[in-house]
Simulated scan of single mutants.
Amino acid sequence: MKLSVEYLIPKYQDNLYQAAFSVLQNPADAQDAVQTTMIRYHYLNQEFEDEEHIRKWLFKTVINASKDIRRSFWRRNKVSLEETMASIEFERIQDQSLFQEVCSLPEKYRIVIQLFYYEEFTIQEISQLLSITQSNVKKRLSRARDKLRNVLEQEDEHVN
């Protein structure tokens, strides 16, 4: 099974962008990672079992492309996190605060939070996507939650 890129782009583009952004924290680079992923898929001569298999391949590829871009010496079009935050509209102020705190986490925690909570991948799927053990995924999720909880509790204390 191989679905058309025309079908996949509108369906997965935003989610792939969010996963790439969680690694790169740069809108232009995240867009490049998504574009690279779609181009690789288009030229790939591989049959997939089903759409879920394609989805997993897309996320694994966009994460790897993001890591490649991050390691690249020539990271262009850098935009600060503050500029990016100013361009995103949030329904509630709490959502913005949570987003800022997630973005401030180290990458290894950001990516598991993104994949688990926003993309709804299972622990096992995240383990496969990131090529780490399931216990490592659980540990990273737990540590990320602890860090977020501590920061958000401190913010609540300041507000009250």
Rank of each mutant, 00 (worst) to 15 (best):
Q100E: 15
E89S: 12
N136S: 14
Q46Y: 06
V5M: 05
L105H: 03
I69P: 04
Y17W: 12
A33P: 02
N15P: 00
Y7A: 08
I63Y: 13
S22H: 10
E107R: 02
Y7P: 00
Q114L: 02
Y17R: 02
N77D: 15
Q46F: 05
W74P: 00
R70L: 15
D50H: 11
A28Y: 13
E91Q: 12
F121G: 02
D68G: 08
Q31L: 09
S104I: 01
K147Y: 11
V62R: 01
Q35L: 09
T37N: 02
L141E: 12
K60P: 01
K11L: 11
S80E: 12
E89H: 12
S66Y: 11
R140T: 04
E101F: 02
M1E: 11
Q124K: 12
E107C: 04
E52I: 06
K11H: 08
I132K: 01
H42C: 06
C103Q: 11
S66H: 09
R70Y: 15
A86R: 14
S135Q: 14
K11F: 06
I88M: 06
Y109D: 10
L98Q: 08
R143D: 11
K60H: 09
S131F: 09
Y17H: 05
E6N: 10
Q25R: 07
A144V: 09
M85P: 00
E83W: 07
E157N: 06
Y117Q: 07
N45G: 04
F121W: 01
Q46G: 00
H53A: 08
S135I: 13
E155L: 13
T37S: 02
E155D: 14
K11N: 06
V112I: 12
L8F: 03
L115T: 06
L58R: 02
E125D: 11
P27Y: 03
Q18I: 11
L115M: 07
P106S: 08
P10W: 08
I111A: 06
R40P: 00
I126G: 01
